[in-house]
Design a protein around this nucleic acid. Structure first.
Lengths: 330, 330
DNA sequence: CAGGGTCGTGGAAACGATTACACGCGGATT
DNA sequence: AATCCGCGTGTAATCGTTTCCACGACCCTG
């Protein structure tokens, strides 16, 4: 492939001049600029970003490590991140950790070797990971959705679902449900903890019981939601309502409920954290807690870009909304 | 950040030796290797992939440009691609074209500048795009799912849905539906055309009518499915069944049907191309044509890696299966 | 008309790795 | 004993850019 030297030769200028027109440097005579442009077109020259990055020490690339691409929440987030990043002149390299901390480390490592300018992470569990180490190392980084406690210098862009969860428990209580169960995320994720605690707190506020067997830990994937639901339904006194702390576990819960020939909400009510388009069309439509996913992605990128460009970056906490549908009853 | 020189100094060897242990070159005395390893750890050294890529002229990176990340089919594909790529030692940079050819070009351009080793594209419409130009330029490239006619040297990894579509028309016919409508993809996409033609062909084989007003062109996004369905339902004699050629347009169709207070399948039957987990839980479950998405992603990466490593690459055509559910009737 | 700016351009030194080549040393071969 | 070979290591060129500095031409000012 043609290099800058070839362009220079063809345009009868030096490589320095070619570089200048490439980068929009003003001190180039219009005529010269035209000659260079022409040479570039004729040769089909494309600047070598690798060489440029080596020289300038930045790659115009952001890394985004999410825990599960198949989760519609994260794909929506990824899309929002990419849009905002592009608006700032960055591209995005994605890594899918599949909820495994080893895979997460793998991606962080390769992203770092690629010398991305900044890192967006929605950390999975295990805080003994590379992420903690990197957090201290000066690489611009921001947590999105989830975070790791004890990384004080890393901004967090997330949504606080506590009010919405309280509203959900209100809603369930008003519909007459008293035995409420929850499928939490891994105890090692912040979101998992926060959502579970908010739920338990809301139960207490209503004077509702919160026995240990009405709480199962899942891993944010459909299979675990299904298994947790099976254990609930096997109880001598199964819950009247189940709250899944993410959409995939809610999907698994529906699987199990349906497999047993039970009906939502008549036999058991269901609600989920994270709203997604499909919830409108399930049988019945699922009441969910909607995060402002786009704002989350945009805010995270803005914080990261601030950090990269040397401005102070701010954490950002958004709020979620309850979207009642039929899956909890009338 | 520490460089190879710092490591060399600390281990009291030359940079060449450090490079050798980095790359597993055998001709290093075990003792030396150990000293270097220790120095690397102590400094927290991470090789600079940018410099390495410049020197070696490869980046161990593949580019994947899909038309819509929010489409579950493509996110499943992306995941399969990433898995297989990782198994071969490559990482993947994704670009989301959002069905816009300008955005697609943008991504192709930046990927090329980043000097990715190979490109996987599911091209959107517009064949006058950069993609066609690149196809001829010697950059390893393979088309996945969709392709562009007239790029003879670019392998295509895709699924042939014709048999499954014929089976679907059989299925609909057997259930008593006679007035069948189709929402196609953009005429400029190969998949859009193939699916529409297969459907029309199957109608003809059954002696069913195929009036022009039973065919609407969508853009593979939910909104267009909804609008097309609205036009169908406004017809004096609306169709008895609607076939959406992708899952998002099917979602839009359900939106519209439900908004009018009609029921699936009693008032109108619905089927979709591309099966996704949510279709099991919609009301009613929708019959779909399932592509072997994983095999598609894996096959595409293998073909691309073959190309990159100088082996002959082969096109691959898989087949799809009809998964009957309740949305077409009993 | 001398001195000082500005403007457009070119020469060459980085950036951080990989790798061809050279070298010194010890053991085996003759 | 002379030669050769292979092993472990170092020196330095190289990849394709950006960018600092220098330089000549020109214009302005005093």
């Amino acid at each position: 492939m043609a290099g800058i030297k070839d362009v220079a030769a063809r345009a009868r200028v030096s490589v320095a001049t070619v570089s200048r027109v490439l980068n929009g440097h003003p001190a180039v005579r219009p005529g010269t600029r035209e000659r260079v442009r022409a040479a570039i077109d004729e040769l089909g020259y494309r600047p070598n970003g690798v060489a440029r990055s080596l020289r300038t020490d930045h790659t115009s690339t952001l890394g985004l490590v999410v825990s599960d691409v198949l989760n519609p929440f994260f794909t929506a987030l990824a899309r929002a991140v990419e849009d905002e990043a592009r608006a700032h002149g960055y591209s995005v390299v994605f890594g899918n950790a599949d909820e495994q901390s080893a895979l997460q480390d793998h991606h962080v490592r390769t992203l770092l070797e690629r010398r991305i300018d900044g890192l967006l992470v929605s950390p999975t569990a295990d805080s003994a990971s590379l992420v903690t180490e990197v957090a201290g190392s000066g690489v611009p980084m921001v947590f999105v959705d989830r975070w790791i406690a004890g990384c004080p210098r890393v901004p967090v862009v997330r949504t606080d679902g506590r009010a919405a969860i309280a509203a959900l428990v209100d809603h369930l209580h008003r519909l007459g449900h008293r035995r409420l169960a929850v499928i939490t995320g891994p105890a090692t994720t912040t979101t998992g903890n926060e959502r579970a605690e908010a739920f338990l707190g809301a139960l207490a506020a209503h004077g509702l019981p919160a026995p240990a067997h009405y709480r199962e830990e899942g891993d944010f994937q459909a299979g675990s939601g299904r298994r947790a639901t099976a254990r609930f339904l096997d109880l001598p006194e199964p819950p009247e309502a189940i709250f899944a702390t993410d959409n995939l576990m809610a999907l698994g819960a529906m699987d199990e409920i349906r497999a047993r020939g039970l009906r939502v909400p008549d036999d058991v009510a269901l609600a989920a954290f994270d709203d997604i388009p499909w919830f409108l069309h399930t049988d019945p439509p699922v009441t969910a807690i909607a995060q402002p996913t786009e704002a989350l992605g945009h805010g995270a990128v803005r914080a990261l870009v601030d950090l990269i460009e040397g401005r102070p970056a701010t954490s950002l906490t958004l709020t979620a909304d309850l979207v009642p549908r039929r899956s909890c009853g009338e």
